[in-house]
Structures are given as structure tokens and as C-alpha cells.
Design a protein around this nucleic acid. Structure first.
Lengths: 131, 131
DNA sequence: CCGCTACATGCAAAACTATGAATATAGTGT
DNA sequence: ACACTATATTCATAGTTTTGCATGTAGCGG
């Protein structure tokens, strides 16, 4: 069940039916508010998991699970830097989806990611960057 | 569980949390290929249920169920004309979502709704219009 | 190599969704 | 009022997702 969005590198043939399945997976990834919140935080650039944990208020394992869903949907990518693992958006088009969706339900599009208590993230980058 | 998208008429207050829920409902409605296919047929204007039945190849009850989901998500509206009930899109923005999604998975955007055998629909309007 | 930190994964119970079959309802023609 | 057509709803079952908990793994510092 590890579906990956249209990989431009590989030259394998993708049937219409498979694309429909991928389309479903794409929207499925956006069904969960926690995943949208994660994408929202990544909107401004890559972030480590601890940053997400601190900003969203969910527990680490929970966030890792949601990240795995987004990763399998081909929306994000990770890379390690020392102890920390940083995630970044690989399909910025997803924000078009989120923004249109938000407009449809009457949400402001450019608002702060979440109303969580913005706990400080202990990782080196976060420490130097914003806190 | 009858969630309706931001109704401009009613002046009731919608919390951010409720909007997030609505956003989830919106994407959830798009997860199912049958529902996307229905929206696609309605893209060119309102159609009766029998038309959907004939074009999609699903059974009547099944289509009604999917229509109910789309209706509860606030994406479509029905109105009766004699024996037939016609459905139409009330949120054309949804096509922006579908089209962006399709582009992301590498689907052609302007293609015929479905590869079903295009059975003739017996309702008066369809009879005079296209068949 | 040991313990620590930062994440990921596996598992299982609860919650939710999909789907077919049966049944209900609402309008139409006689 | 009756039978008929078009569509909706209900219900039960199978399948999937969610989510917390426990555990696993990979790199770092000593």
C-alpha cells in the first residue's frame, strides 16, 4: 500500500485506474486535520519532527504516523541532519488544494498554522532561528 | 452528521474547529472515484439520477448513496421535475480541486467522464437532448 | 561499545466507511 | 384509489482508518 504520486524519474506505465487510486490517496491524505496542520507548518520551509511535535501538541509517535501517511502519498520527503530528521514539501501544488478547500468552507487562508501553545522546540536549528 | 458547507444565508457562528471538520468532509467527499465521476458528469450542467445511472454503470441505490454524501458535503443540490430528480453543482470551486489533484497525479483534466458504455438514459430530457 | 536522543514502526482495539440488499417514499397516470 | 416509475433511506456486514501503547532503530557523544 505504498502509493507514490506520479514519479517523473521512473518510466513505468501508470494506468488510468491506478491514477484514480492515486487521486483518491491524495485527497485521503488531506482528510485529516492533523496532516493539514503538518503541511501548513512545512509551508514555510523544512522542519524537524521535534518542531512539529512542539507546535502541534501531538505526541511524537502520532506525528510520525501522520508523516508516514504524507510520505507514502508522495507529498513530503525527509532527510537527516545529525540527530534530527527534517521534512519538506515536495509537491507545493498541495497548497492550492488546501487553500481552495479552505476558501470553500470559509476559512482564512493565510493564518498561523495552529492555535497550539507554540512550545519551544529544542533542536539546534529551531533554537537559533525563531526562539 | 449532516455537515453543510459555509451557508452564506444562515448567520450562525462557525468555529474554526467546525470549519476544519468541514474541510475534512470536503476532501472526504472527493476520496471516492465514483463521487468524482458523478461530479464530472454534473460539470456540464444538471442531470437526473437515471442519467448518472446510465452513464456510470452503477446501480440506482448506490448512486443515490453517493449523491447523498455529496449533498451532505454541500457540493450538490437536487430539485424535482416531474418524476425525475435533477442534481446540479452548487460549488463549482470543487472542480479546481479535482483538476489540480488530477494534474498532480498526471491525469488529463478534460477527458470524458468515464469509460462506461454510455447507455441511453430514458428520461425525457436526456431523450430530447443528446440521444 | 554504552547509553542517550530523535524518530519510526508494529500491533490491537475502537471508530468509522463502503456496499449490497431490502424497503420506503413521492409523484404520475388511469 | 391503484399500480407504476424514479429515487431515497435503512440496515447489516465487511473492510479500512484512527490512535494509543509498546517497542525498534539510527546516529551521536563519551
Amino acid at each position: 500500500m505504498s502509493i507514490v504520486l506520479a514519479s517523473r524519474e521512473s518510466s513505468k506505465i501508470v494506468t488510468e485506474e491506478e491514477k484514480q487510486e492515486q487521486l483518491a490517496q491524495l485527497f485521503k491524505a488531506l482528510v485529516h486535520p492533523a496532516r493539514i496542520a503538518i503541511l501548513d507548518i512545512l509551508r514555510n520551509g523544512e522542519q524537524c519532527v521535534c518542531h512539529l511535535e512542539a507546535n502541534l501538541g501531538y505526541r511524537q509517535a502520532y506525528i510520525s504516523q501522520q508523516l508516514a501517511v504524507l510520505r507514502e502519498a508522495g507529498l513530503i520527503q525527509d532527510h537527516r541532519d545529525g540527530l534530527n530528521i527534517y521534512y519538506r514539501i515536495v509537491r507545493p501544488e498541495v497548497f492550492a488544494l488546501i487553500d481552495v478547500g479552505r476558501a470553500m468552507v470559509g476559512m482564512e487562508i493565510s493564518r498561523s498554522p495552529l492555535n497550539a501553545p507554540q512550545t519551544a522546540c529544542p533542536c539546534p536549528r529551531c533554537a537559533t532561528k525563531s526562539d
